[in-house]
């Protein structure tokens, strides 16, 4: 029983950075903007969060700074693609390149610093309940927050008027513009929100998961987050499920290895990627459902004059 609880907790912890980054990207993509710079934004969020935490001794301040840093990098992307109309795919990749370099550069003096991490909660009374106590009431605050973010995004997109407008912009920016919505401004907000979430996802890595800074600490999680949005067919609930599935399969293959399963580790390491592909192929067969959720204008530039 204890092991089962452990596994659930480990899966949650492994999936959390992906939840943040992918939820943010989902909102941006819902307005029709594809930002492939997630890896770069996560790294910059991670390094700035770490630097601020190290300087101030306050990890929460670090987390806030990480959010701001991710948002700032996303703003660069927004200016380049939304105002200056550059190609989104290429700009996003260039942003990643830039973010990887920038984070490594500003973090040079911090690679040997040790900080006080954000500690897991131990909810009084509740955490001491048998079984459910450990299962539900001992998470890291940032793990709880990631689920709150999911609830907020879900509610915003599908139960508010503003969310409807966001989706309309992603569906047909021309029509939204014709009705009088400020398409470019809405896309700006969504992209910056996406950057903020990616920044927080990065901050989770450097403040909670591996409280330290090293070049490339995200090790490709930004790319996985991008893939998860597609995997989720642009549904927030599936983003969360996908993040835990991915984290869970990774952990499961480690479990199998530690048990001494006689399969080369490379085969096992392929599993999370293959599982994602197979599940995507299965859910994508329902063409209608995808059409309903996929932002039709994804990746398409829009200029009010054009």
């Amino acid at each position: 029983m204890d092991t089962a609880v452990q596994l659930v907790l480990l899966t949650l912890a492994a999936g959390t950075p992906l939840v943040y980054a992918a939820l943010g990207e989902l909102v941006a993509e819902k307005t029709g903007v594809l930002n492939l710079g997630v890896e770069g934004m996560m790294l910059v969020g991670a390094v700035v969060a770490f630097i601020v935490a190290a300087r101030t001794g306050a990890p929460w301040l670090g987390a806030i700074a990480g959010i701001a840093a991710g948002a700032a990098l996303a703003l660069v992307f927004a200016v380049v693609t939304l105002t200056l109309q550059a190609n989104q795919v290429a700009s996003g990749l260039a942003l990643s390149l830039f973010g990887v370099g920038l984070s490594a550069f500003v973090g040079l003096d911090y690679v040997s610093v040790v900080i006080e991490p954000i500690k897991p909660l131990h909810v009084p009374v509740l955490a001491d309940l048998p079984f459910v106590g450990a299962l539900l009431f001992t998470w890291n605050p940032l793990v709880y927050l990631s689920l709150a973010l999911f609830a907020a995004v879900q509610w915003f997109l599908f139960h508010t008027r503003a969310g409807l407008v966001v989706r309309a912009v992603g569906e047909s920016p021309e029509s939204a513009h014709a009705i009088g919505y400020p398409v470019v401004r809405i896309r700006y907000f969504a992209v910056v929100f996406g950057g903020a979430c990616a920044g927080l996802g990065g901050a989770y890595l450097s403040l909670v998961y591996n409280p330290s800074w090293a070049e490339g600490i995200t090790a490709g999680r930004g790319w996985i987050a991008l893939a998860l949005v597609v995997f989720a067919t642009w549904k927030p609930s599936r983003v969360v499920a996908g993040a835990y599935l991915f984290g869970g399969v990774t952990l499961a293959q480690f479990q199998a290895q530690a048990l001494g399963v006689e399969i080369p580790s490379q085969y096992l390491a392929m599993l999370p990627y293959l599982a994602t592909i197979v599940v995507l192929a299965l859910i994508s067969r329902d063409v209608v459902s995808i059409r309903l959720n996929a932002p039709a204008a994804l990746g398409r530039p829009f200029h009010p004059d054009a």
Partner: peptide, 14 residues
């Protein structure tokens, strides 16, 4: 670092 952490936690759970 992420995977190294996950691998360590896995080993501890076993």
């Amino acid at each position: 670092p992420g995977k190294e952490t996950e691998a360590t936690n896995t080993l501890v759970s076993q």
